[in-house]
Design a protein around this nucleic acid. Structure first.
Lengths: 375, 375
DNA sequence: TTGAAAGCGCTAACAC
DNA sequence: GTGTTAGCGCTTTCAA
């Protein structure tokens, strides 16, 4: 390996000027090659790449950002929790962003309150991100904020205005509806609902799906119990529900809550699924191994993240163009052992047409539209 | 609210020069105030802050980074998985970094192989981070890399050299030992081990802790079974272990694997904990609600992250000074329902010649020694 | 198809 | 205590 460059000893990292010198071209040409711009002869391109390689040249992102105004990085506002859902979404976002050649900056908000979100967004903007992803924030309260870059709301409706506002749902409404329909199909006369915190949009969406499934069958709508996503809150709800002998089916808005719920139910002497059926929400694979294995609906984290980032990238790089339409992820119901036909009653007709894939129901309003929420 | 600034209409974001003009000072003084440098009169400081506030001024990080060479951001190389452990560590890191006033950049590696880690680290360096956190990488293979910023290895030994290499453990060795001791204390003559992938340092550390606990009591060391952290791999191990009637206690290197393991055990007719005791590793709270509730050891994710970032910040901001010593996090054993004394028996009426390809060594080699892998 | 000059917004070093 | 003068390393005009 011939040492072509004069001195590279005491000096620090090579700059584009060094590459230019070694390749025998101008700095601008180096820049062209590095940015894959047209109008560079193959010969020159090759020489530049070779020189960069030889020098171990690494482009300085800060300088590029300063000069161009574009940072090639996107920021994500996430919840500071290690839950399966949140973590899965973050992993999916990271991968999609990296595949796009962008860098990822993360800011968590302890609890997704408006101030927290606003602060996180401002901090991200200050860091110079080209786009922002707000993942599963709360919906309550107004975030008064105006951001000058595109913002993607993943699994939630827009909470503030931005240069370009995008929304990609995770199909929570349809998933909740499928979960409830599954229970109804089994022959349960109605389904109780253990919801997430009322302030979360994710809660409202699931609640709405459950409600619509009930309404479609003319089933009675029992009062909603509210948890906080934690297994402990599921347990507390279970204690409450176990005392009500009319309960035969429960749809919990989260797997962890469902597990806590089942725990309390069984402790109170109610068998699952013989006496009471339980469906969770998320799709954490570990719950295939508990007793009873948890029936649940799988959230399309990866697909939603990929789709969302695709839209965001488009909005960043081609602000003028109209965005290609978002494809709705499929509904995936995972039937395991925590659901069964209701007790006493004779087994229902075998017409078990589980709402799998396909939007499954008469009308499923897309996320962002406010289906009748109570709260 | 008096509009002091001349025109702010069509123009874009205000710069430090605008603030300087409004406050009637020089740009450098604005810079001083914004960086909390000394030698600025309170009066001037107040005026500058006021002007900045009024203009809605936001400092441009890219420009600062370019000018100063410091980026006020740290990068983390994580595993692209949504597991409880990984996610908890990341959340802890994010919080600690944010509290230090730094920004966080994240790059995941699909599987922590040397190339993946090297690529992630280079990408982070290119992005101009001031420090890097490598969280739970694999240990096998050499990462040939020289980084010019401090690197913190969290829960793993240094995998490559850097300007300043820091290491903070999560006490895995002590935790594994505590888990095994708990089983031994219960009266089990020995404890089997379901390990993580051999390439992971986390696996080796836990393995070593288990091994040392056994050795300290002179207990026989059964062959190690290797999983991949997934509940499915735990299940597979359980099928295998259930066939061996001499097994009365198992220490699994992860909660999820423990759950899969218990599943298989019970399916094979072995009761937990009556016939076989199982201890997990991590501390995911949801497993307090399964049947049986999982006994486990809790990893001090937050404490480790906080301590690690503290060290890293110190290395970044005061490279000369010696680092304050790291405090070891406490060992936390969470005893729940999956462990009990061994089954009622007066004498261990069993010839242990089931799977006798154990090495049966009486000493505990430190991590780094490769355990007999099965795969 | 390539190059020369002029900054991007900030901080560093040195004056005053 | 405060201001002045130069850049940081890259991309952008615009010209050749």
């Amino acid at each position: 390996m011939a040492r072509v460059v004069g001195r590279s000893v005491g000096s620090s990292a090579p700059r584009s000027a060094d590459v230019a010198r070694v390749a025998g071209v101008s700095r601008k040409t180096v820049s062209r090659v590095l940015n894959n711009e047209p109008y560079v002869s193959d010969e020159v391109r090759r020489r530049v790449l070779e020189a960069a390689e030889e020098l171990g040249y690494r482009l300085n992102h800060a300088a590029r950002a300063l000069a161009s105004g574009r940072n090639r990085s996107i920021g994500v506002v996430a919840l500071g929790t290690a839950g399966y859902g949140t973590a899965s979404l973050l992993v999916g976002i990271e991968k999609a962003v990296r595949d796009s050649g962008y860098a990822l900056r993360v800011v968590n908000t302890a609890d997704g309150d408006p101030e927290g979100i606003a602060g996180a967004v401002m901090s991200l903007r200050e860091q110079g991100v080209d786009g922002i992803v707000v993942s599963e924030p709360i919906v309550e309260g107004e975030v008064s904020l105006k951001v000058d870059v595109p913002v993607l709301f993943l699994g939630a409706p827009p909470a503030f205005t931005s240069a370009r506002t995008l929304t990609v749902g995770v199909g929570a409404y349809a998933l909740a509806r499928a979960a409830t329909d599954h229970l109804l199909d089994l022959g349960h006369t109605t389904v109780h609902h253990l919801a997430g915190p009322g302030r979360w949009y994710a809660s409202k969406d699931r609640l709405a799906g459950w409600r619509s499934a009930l309404a479609a069958r003319g089933a009675h709508e029992p009062p909603v119990i509210e948890g906080d996503w934690s297994p402990a809150s599921g347990y507390a709800a279970g204690v409450e529900l176990a005392a009500d002998s009319s309960v035969t089916a429960v749809f919990a808005a989260g797997d962890d809550m469902a597990i806590g719920l089942i725990h309390a139910l069984r402790e109170a002497g109610r068998r699952v699924p013989e006496d009471i059926s339980v469906v969770g929400f998320d799709g954490n694979p570990v719950f295939a191994h508990v007793t009873p294995p948890l029936t649940t609906v799988r959230q399309p984290f990866d697909a939603a993240a990929r789709e969302g980032i695709r839209l965001l990238m488009h909005a960043i790089e081609e602000p003028e163009t109209d965005l290609p339409p978002a494809s709705e992820p499929p509904v995936e119901l995972v039937v395991r052992g925590s659901t069964a036909p209701p007790p006493t009653r004779k087994a229902p007709a075998r017409g078990r047409r589980t709402a799998s894939r396909s939007r499954g129901s008469a009308h499923a309003p897309p996320a962002g539209d406010g289906p009748p929420t109570t709260d």
